[in-house]
Design a protein around this nucleic acid. Structure first.
Lengths: 335, 335
DNA sequence: CTGTTAGCGCCTTCAG
DNA sequence: CTGAAGGCGCTAACAG
């Protein structure tokens, strides 16, 4: 049996209160402190977090609900979040929504039942209803990567419209006019990015033909097939913007398998500098999200909610993106 | 405040014991059962797992330690394990060892401290020392994907040697003699597979030249650069075996970027049918691991240990692999 | 600074 | 089948 606080009492002759206080960083006479410390060592004592949790109503555990754990993007977020949390002694319980709103709602219930101290979530649903229970129970929630139309939750994401807007302008400035896009109607981010793209094109006075707009899902497959069909178009675009990691990867593969050359025949601009870019040829120009910073910020927010007694208004953080230069975009003569 | 068992008492007039028994599936008079059930609904009662855990010494939580959470392989395992566990009401706490033995040992300590009911682990270390503490505390452990030289833990994996052995023979039977391999000296599986490969080649009376053996790490980068350098060899191999998902992916990309054609100039055989294969050209021949089954089995084992009172001897399950046919291997005229 | 005394919410003997 | 009482390991007021 593991040693308990009582065993320490019998060995030191001190009272439970004193020992507890010591364990929680209170002030104790140096002489007693000494005694306790040796007792802890002798007995191999470790606090029982469960017992502590029962009284403090804290579990030192936070839940993270991701839209799809098989996506690279989720994987990276889990990693950074896990790291940051761990550094503060918190465990991370991961739940996968499999891109399904029903499962997502279920995940929230599950985590609340497990008494997590807070929930980080990359939501699938576009409405916040399913988070109501968390709010009722006053379990802090932080949205990541995506937000709701009128959310009053903390949220950490990037400015998706702006990112795509700037990406489109980058291409426009280099003389491209026939620009296609591979985006998503399912994923919030894909949709936002599509709007940013449209905005830039609109301002440039260009109407994007329908066959240049590949709006589907953020998967490797979709990126792949979209790029293939774009390449086969009679009036081939001169540049393509892929709005996330998976579609970027799929599109690059498609081009490399084809008889076309990038950037010779077609220019490409991607999203999310994960592994691929260090490997793939050509070196892809891309919009880079500050993944690590996002995660650290999200953890900071959730911990501040957990620790904070006075509740503050929700904070929505929109981070900027950066460009990574490559050689996948050819400047055209025009302009 | 959430409702407690006491609130149910006041509403039903029954005693705590009766209610508790009901909650744990015991027999209760139908009339009382009725009362309790309506009270539960009225009060929105949910058992407090924390409190229950304190007395039963169970948390309904298991930990999973993966060697590297950014690897696709880990991602898939986490997914299936999480699913199976969840179905039984268990939460999954994920820890990333970042391929570092020190972090790995720390993860074990952390999980034990969090009082998980069991630990699933894809180990980084090749020795089991760091798991001793778990054994002392009688926390069940199940190894996944990799095992130790003399482990007495439950373990679920594939027969790596045999898988590679058969893969090599597949190539040999189709007349290939100049076969190269991309494997790993770091990852247990890569090393095992390398041995299986060597065995098959040895039996075929072929000595594999040193420059055909790319032994490094299981990363996309390594697969990529290895394939590039193999392609540049004066005496180019006619076929290459990649021993895991990441190296397969990297190698395919390398070939597609190069001036060589698969299977025209070079044949390829990969490992692990994750996403890539549905996308990539050519359709890759590969060794497929029964990921889902492995995970289900692992969960079954850990739960049986958790639930079982009498302890049984450790079980080591070695699953078979299957082939997925493709068109990345060209039969040679010889033989 | 230290000790005493209650619980946190639940389960589990025991009697009845 | 039901009820009463004790305790899981720890924290949180209070007094001293």
């Amino acid at each position: 049996m593991a040693a308990t606080i009582r065993d320490i009492r019998t060995q030191t002759g001190l009272s439970l209160a004193t020992i507890s206080k010591y364990l929680n960083g209170g002030n104790v006479l140096p002489e007693n402190r000494e005694k306790i410390e040796t007792a802890i060592r002798d007995l191999n004592y470790e606090v029982n977090e469960i017992a502590r949790g029962l009284v403090t109503n804290r579990t030192k555990t936070v839940g993270m609900i991701v839209y799809d754990i098989e996506s690279m993007f989720s994987g990276v977020l889990i990693r950074y979040v896990g790291d940051s949390l761990r550094r503060e002694g918190y465990a991370l319980v991961v739940c996968d929504s499999c891109n399904d709103e029903r499962i997502e709602a279920d995940n929230v219930r599950f985590l609340l039942n497990k008494k997590v101290d807070g929930i980080l979530i990359i939501p699938v649903s576009r409405k916040a209803d399913f988070l109501l229970r968390a709010k009722e129970k006053r379990v802090p929630v932080v949205l990541m990567d995506r937000s709701f139309a009128d959310s009053d939750f903390d949220c950490v994401k990037i400015d998706n419209r702006m990112a795509a807007y700037r990406a489109a302008n980058y291409l426009l400035e280099r003389g491209h006019k026939k620009i296609a896009i591979i985006a998503s109607r399912v994923e919030y981010t894909g949709w936002e990015r599509f709007k940013g793209f449209q905005e830039a094109m609109g301002e440039a006075g260009i109407t994007v033909p329908e066959e240049y707009c590949k709006i589907g899902v953020h998967t490797i497959e979709f990126g792949h097939e979209s790029m293939l069909s774009l390449l086969e178009l009679p009036d081939r675009p001169s540049a393509v913007l892929m709005t996330n990691y998976e579609t970027s990867l799929g599109a690059v593969m498609a081009v490399n398998e084809s008889r076309f050359d990038c950037p010779g025949d077609i220019s490409m601009m991607g999203f999310d500098d994960l592994i691929m870019s260090h490997v793939v040829k050509p070196k892809l120009c891309m919009v880079v999200q500050p993944m690590k910073e996002m995660c650290e910020k999200a953890v900071e927010l959730i911990l501040s909610q957990i620790g904070g007694d006075e509740k503050r208004p929700p904070i929505e953080i929109s981070m900027g993106t950066t460009f990574r230069d490559g050689n996948s975009v050819k400047p055209l003569q025009g302009k």
